[in-house]
Amino acid sequence: MPAETAQPKTKTALPSWKDGPAKQAILDFVATATTAGQGFIPLADRIATFDNDGTLWSEQPLPAQFDFVFRKWGEEVKGDPSLASTQPYKALVESDMAFFAGVGTQDPATIEALLNAFIRSWAGTTPDEFDAEVRAWLATVKQPKFGVPYTELVYKPMLELIEFLTAHDFRVFVCSGGGRDFMRVFAEETWGIYKENIIGTAAGYRYSDGVIVRAAEGLGGLDLGPGKPEHIFAHTGRLPVFAAGNGDVDIEMLESAAFALVINHDDDEREFAYTTGAEKTVELAADHGWTVVSIKDDWSNVYGSSPAA
């Protein structure tokens, strides 16, 4: 077992982060958490959680999983035109993006419709069948602004942060409103995070005759708002001590942590500039002492080797 009083490895830490208050706040927190004395955090409690969309990779002009499911739902409507009269298929056919904006505001009607559609689309499929669909999408679809696969638009500074925390004996989890099983397909090769450390909106499963398949019901509701700390605790038995997010659906997770990191999207040249869906988070950050990261000012590199670096 590693020594609980090991000194932080900061000499080459976070190379894509510019020197400044945000980087220093991270270094200071980790130093305190891993050094004997006031603020020391035992190994067992070193839980770090990261939102995905807008925190680990770009979520504009549309979260990546929406691209994936919209294509699936479009095929389903072609096969059964009657679906076009019900949500969320109706909003998709009519290009009614205001309906899908209800995810950010946690509108009950939007959330219920999306959950029902997610469940319907893949109920009865095996994990291998679902994984194959996601991998085919990853291999063929490109993000519209940059023209590269979505997995090339993971933020390099956040990968460095995950590596830094892991090196100091934090257990890192992704906690996203997106589909748990969707993220698990690429989590290990893209983020270096094991499948079992992915928390998200999930389907139930049934095991029968030697085969496990997706059930016709969800598991615990959407992983948004209060659902995030609830799901984190259900999964780990603890609340996080370090949490990173970027939107209003992350507020409860950020509030539950000793150290909260907020990604501020303010770089339209290298990424995107927007505050939609994060207005309350920005307002609360100052009151709660959360560390706000400016992509424009705090990151020397955004995507690593991608064209948008």
Rank of each mutant, 00 (worst) to 15 (best):
D268T: 03
V141Y: 11
L92T: 13
V93P: 03
D287N: 14
P307V: 01
A285P: 01
I162M: 13
T275R: 07
D223K: 12
E189H: 08
P144N: 06
E133F: 09
D53N: 04
D45E: 11
W290I: 10
V302C: 13
G227W: 03
A139N: 14
D169Y: 11
F50G: 08
H168L: 10
D96G: 09
G37H: 10
E271A: 13
F118Q: 12
E4L: 07
H168I: 02
P144V: 02
E196N: 13
I212A: 12
D266K: 13
T281K: 11
I119K: 08
Y207S: 14
R135Q: 12
P307E: 03
V282Y: 14
G204V: 00
K78H: 11
W299V: 09
C175S: 07
V134K: 14
A84V: 00
P108D: 04
W290L: 05
A309E: 13
A308W: 02
F68H: 04
D19C: 11
T276R: 15
I162G: 06
E230N: 15
T35D: 14
K195G: 05
K280S: 10
I47K: 04
G39A: 03
M253N: 00
L115I: 11
V213H: 10
R238V: 00
F50R: 11
A84W: 06
L92P: 02
H231G: 02
T35Y: 11
Y155N: 08
P108C: 02
R71E: 14
V282I: 13
L27F: 03
G192E: 02
K72S: 08
T166K: 12
A215Q: 04
P157Q: 03
M1F: 09
F242G: 05
E252I: 04
W122K: 10
G245D: 03
D51Q: 08
T105E: 02
G39W: 00
D28I: 05
G200W: 03
E252H: 14
D169C: 06
E75H: 07
S121V: 03
E252K: 15
G237I: 00
